[in-house]
């Protein structure tokens, strides 16, 4: 049973895509820093929506937990440290350079996405592949602690070092 048919999925995709891009543009345009931060979060959240559409619920939930839960708070606190929050999001001297850079990156992304040969799944996913989608977190966990355990541990050490560094920075002498 697939009650959400393809047309509806497509509609949802375009809706989410519009929200993502629209919010991202507004982040740059809006003058109020706080609103810009909130719009950035809205944009990231609708990316989570697109992940759900792609059957990647785990990724979607992680996206919300990390961006809306952690990064958002960090960004908002950083905004609080800015002076003149309601007017702070002005154009800056590096705006043209930044715009050029972003345009080049966007162009490169679009080009590579159009050129790439996507290894698309067939309409009816074969059983061994379908099993991957059923229990993503368990498979991710197994892989992280078996095949990729070194990378996992390195990431852990890096984060630990960052925590120690943060503590050392704020420590009163």
């Amino acid at each position: 049973m697939q009650p959400v048919d393809n047309a509806f999925q497509e509609f949802l995709f375009w809706l989410l895509a519009a929200v993502t891009v629209g919010c991202a543009v507004l982040v740059v345009v809006v003058r109020d820093m706080f609103r810009a931060a909130l719009l950035l979060i809205a944009s990231l959240m609708s990316v989570a929506g697109i992940f759900v559409l792609l059957n990647a619920e785990f990724l979607a939930v992680v996206q919300v937990a990390i961006y809306a839960g952690a990064i958002a708070i960090l960004v908002v606190f950083a905004v609080m440290l800015t002076r003149d929050v309601p007017e702070a999001n002005r154009s800056s001297p590096i705006a043209p350079a930044a715009f050029t850079m972003a345009a080049v990156l966007l162009g490169a992304l679009i080009y590579s996405i159009m050129q790439a040969e996507w290894d698309l799944l067939p309409e009816d996913v074969p059983a061994p592949l379908a099993a991957v989608f059923v229990d993503t977190p368990a498979r991710l966990g197994t892989m992280l602690l078996n095949e990729y355990v070194l990378a996992f541990e390195i990431a852990g050490v890096l984060l630990f070092a960052a925590v120690i560094g943060a503590l050392a920075l704020v420590r009163e002498r």
């Binding site: 619920e57 785990f58 939930v61 992680v62 919300v64 937990a65 809306a68 839960g69 952690a70 958002a72 059923v134 229990d135 993503t136 977190p137 368990a138």
Partner: peptide, 14 residues
């Protein structure tokens, strides 16, 4: 959801 606990964490973050 097979990620129920994570989902709870994500929603409470908002």
């Amino acid at each position: 959801l097979n990620i129920g606990l994570l989902y709870l964490i994500a929603t409470s973050g908002i």
